[in-house]
């Protein structure tokens, strides 16, 4: 009986670690940008290509930056959540249209609804690189001073909104 104890203990520990590992998402790489100033940009607006908006224009408010593209399948999944969030009028959502064709992007917004105050066009993905984007969709919560407070990799879910985004927005606004 006693001789089985040690192998059994090892097995339990290994299973424990493996079980914990199963719950982790290897695609979620912690961003080094949390707590740092959001990288600067100056980009044309999707709906009015003649106009450009820079990060300094957005200072003084708490806002969400949502990286999306019409070619991105998970973006469709998260889109209704963003539309719902935009209706609540608690936090403005700015889109970053990442490596997309503007015509496709506009058609996409027409089809699925537009939760964005505006979408900025990052056609080459250079701003995406500055923000460490590697899996669209990604969402950043940026505070009044232009500091990134939270980053969500992958689609925003109703849970993310309820448990992370809304409480943080409330705290940052308060």
């Amino acid at each position: 009986m006693k001789k089985y104890f040690l192998p059994l203990a090892v097995l339990v520990v290994v299973v424990g670690f493996l079980g914990f590992g199963l719950k982790l998402d290897p695609r979620e790489v912690p961003s080094p940008l949390i707590g740092k100033a959001a990288p600067p940009f100056s980009l044309p607006v999707l709906q009015e290509p003649a106009k450009t908006v820079s990060n300094t224009d957005l200072k003084g408010q708490v806002w969400l930056l949502n990286v999306w593209a019409s070619w991105c399948v998970s973006c469709r999944e998260e889109h209704p959540v963003l539309v719902e969030l935009s209706k609540q009028n608690v936090v403005p959502i700015i889109g970053l249209n990442y490596k997309d064709q503007s015509d496709d992007a506009r058609a996409w917004l027409k089809q699925f609804g537009n939760p964005y105050v505006m979408s900025l066009v990052d056609a080459k993905g250079n701003i995406g690189i500055d923000y460490g984007v590697y899996g669209v969709p990604e969402t950043y919560l940026i505070d009044r001073d232009g500091v990134i407070r939270y980053k969500k990799i992958g689609p925003v879910t109703p849970d993310t909104v309820r448990e992370k985004i809304l409480p943080l927005v409330k705290q940052l606004k308060g």
Binding site: V29, P30, S31, P32, I129, G132, Y134
Partner: peptide, 8 residues
């Protein structure tokens, strides 16, 4: 790159 994507 580390500044953008972390040590990963």
């Amino acid at each position: 790159l580390v500044a953008r994507y972390g040590d990963f």
